[in-house]
Design a protein around this nucleic acid. Structure first.
Lengths: 146, 146
DNA sequence: GCCGTTATTGAGATTCTATATCATCTATTT
DNA sequence: AAATAGATGATATAGAATCTCAATAACGGC
């Protein structure tokens, strides 16, 4: 499946009557070229640095479509704006964040599918996903708090 | 403890060398007068409607202090901006959100303290909190998706 | 392959959230 | 009461994200 993201996105677009364009391809490839968290402006900057002149408007528009398609997820707000990560081809994971150095550790916990199942049953919900952020202080930053 | 929030906030301010002012009192009282989620502009509007002329700047500043003190929590981003709730005097809870009607159901799950404990042990973290959002489609909105 | 329809693009303007500035004011200490 | 230092509010500013609209290009039909 990894590497398939382009076909998945093209299918998603086709199914919605939207078009596959060089700009969307450039954004998609840039998003899947790195494995770290990013924001819209950074994505725009990296594309320009590569010589791919995709406008800011198209970057934001494509990012919205990528989130809608499920290939990319909104991860957290930091410095007043959203940060993203690509999720297609990766096992679902959550984030442990240090309040001191802002380091982010990804983790998986087997309890979460069970939490989802309990909620679905208790509230007649069709649960499609979750976002868990755990925060605290890493060993190195302990003591800096307060 | 409920009703104590004013004293807790005053202590928090004193300990930081900050001052207790009529504006901060007005904001605190408004925040604890309702049990629903709110955003900064709504809080500002409600204060003005009550005839309490607290400036937008002071509303934002006080909200920041309330979050810092732990009396109020950032809950989620919707419509491009942060939403809050007061948490002092309430058991910690998480949010189940319907992607259709945007209804929010609060829930508690006993698995989360265990998740926190596992993370603390595995990564030498001093965990101070977590934020879990589960999303999906409620019974009434099922079928509206896609 | 060409044509027509219609989504897409990009530059710039706009909207909106949130913070910064700074002169004035006020809580608190001595 | 005077001095110190934090707080307030009107306004300006920064920044994120969206909207506008004319020009362009993707895609389906022929």
């Amino acid at each position: 499946m990894p590497g398939d993201e382009e076909q998945v996105f093209r299918d998603f677009l086709a199914q919605k009557g939207r078009r596959w364009t060089p700009e969307r391809q450039a954004v998609l490839r840039e998003v899947f070229a790195h494995h770290d968290h990013f924001d819209a402006e950074e994505l725009h900057r990296r594309l320009r640095e590569r010589g791919l002149a995709v406008s800011r408007a198209s970057v934001y528009r494509t990012l919205g479509l990528l989130v809608e398609s499920g290939l990319v997820a909104e991860v957290f707000v930091e410095d007043g704006h959203m940060h993203y990560e690509h999720v297609y081809g990766h096992e679902h994971h959550c984030h442990l964040r240090c309040l001191g150095c802002r380091r982010i550790i990804e983790f998986r916990d087997e309890a979460l599918p069970q939490v989802e199942a309990r909620l679905a049953a208790a509230h007649q919900f069709q649960v499609t996903g979750h976002k868990l952020e755990v925060y605290g202080w890493c060993a190195a930053c302990r003591g800096k708090q307060g």
